[in-house]
């Protein structure tokens, strides 16, 4: 798979159809008692359909706030946000739920799986909140998603019976089960060892190949180097936005890792 179309710098996003994410003048301020914290100060950003974007920055730089707003989990204080052609700030609570359900997938650093609930049920969860599916189909879709992340054998395990990497795979299966257009991953490898991290990134690259836009927050430069575009936040502003002409491929890196592991 040498010619996998991981989008790299040079392929101009603007030349394509309308961007999946378009943000203009986005601001977010928190009031903490007397102090007002400006988490985002007039951010302008476009993300094209099919991009693999890494966002990094120091803690408090606004990157997480930005992700939460992209994910319709938090509302901006000001500015415009268009997600897949819809103006998010005009949506009601229920419509935002619908956006999260149909268009978005989330992967968190702390996995955020429901404990005491099997992997399969965790993956089925987004399907349960839509009314246009049949329970039997939900089951099939969830199983397929788990097989796709390599957990076909552990569908009835509970999160506490799975390793961190496996739990994150369940979370990825959950994020992709509703065929989203955009997957948001907030430090998905933050709690994982190197090998698991690369495997997880590999899954994201696989999803990206299928056309799903991926936005990944990380503070690890080597993880960011798997992405086709790197955006750096500082003090609520985008300070760097650059293309990576030759992103790493997880499959290659894993192959390099294997012999080293065998020696050790």
């Amino acid at each position: 798979m040498t010619d996998a179309p991981i989008r790299a710098a040079g392929s101009s996003p603007g030349a394509q159809s309308a961007p999946i994410v378009s943000v203009r003048n986005l601001t977010k301020t928190y009031k903490m008692g007397e102090v007002t914290v400006e988490a985002l100060r007039k951010v302008d950003l476009d993300i094209a359909r099919g991009e693999f974007v890494a966002i990094s920055g120091a803690s408090g730089s606004g990157k997480s706030t930005f992700m939460n707003i992209l994910g319709c989990l938090d509302a901006p204080t000001g500015g415009k946000y268009v997600l897949d052609g819809r103006e998010v700030e005009s949506l009601s609570r229920d419509e935002l739920s619908l956006m999260r359900n149909r268009k978005l997938g989330f992967v968190f650093q702390s996995f955020n799986l429901l404990s005491r609930t099997t992997a399969l049920e965790n993956v089925e969860l987004p399907l349960l909140y839509r009314k246009d599916t049949r329970p039997a189909d939900n089951h099939e879709k969830a199983l397929a998603a788990l097989r796709a992340v390599g957990l076909g054998e552990r569908v009835h395990h509970h999160p506490n019976q799975l390793s961190g990497g496996q739990q994150q795979r369940v979370a990825i299966a959950r994020s992709m089960v509703n065929d989203p257009v955009l997957i948001l991953a907030d430090e998905p490898t933050g709690n994982l060892d190197t090998r698991s991290s690369i495997e997880i990134i590999g899954l994201f690259q696989g999803l990206n190949v299928k056309g799903i836009t991926i936005v990944l927050v990380t503070h690890e430069p080597d993880i960011a180097s798997y992405a086709g575009r790197l955006i750096v936040f500082r003090d609520g502003n985008v300070v760097r936005d650059e293309r990576n002409p030759s992103p790493l491929r997880a499959s290659d890196e894993l192959a390099k890792l294997n012999p080293a592991e065998k020696i050790a």
Binding site: G71, D94, F106, L125, P126, Y129
Partner: peptide, 16 residues
């Protein structure tokens, strides 16, 4: 609360 957060994140409506 966290469970509620997860459910809301994957698309549960307030009514659910």
């Amino acid at each position: 609360t966290r469970e509620i957060g997860i459910r809301l994140a994957v698309g549960a409506k307030g009514r659910d």
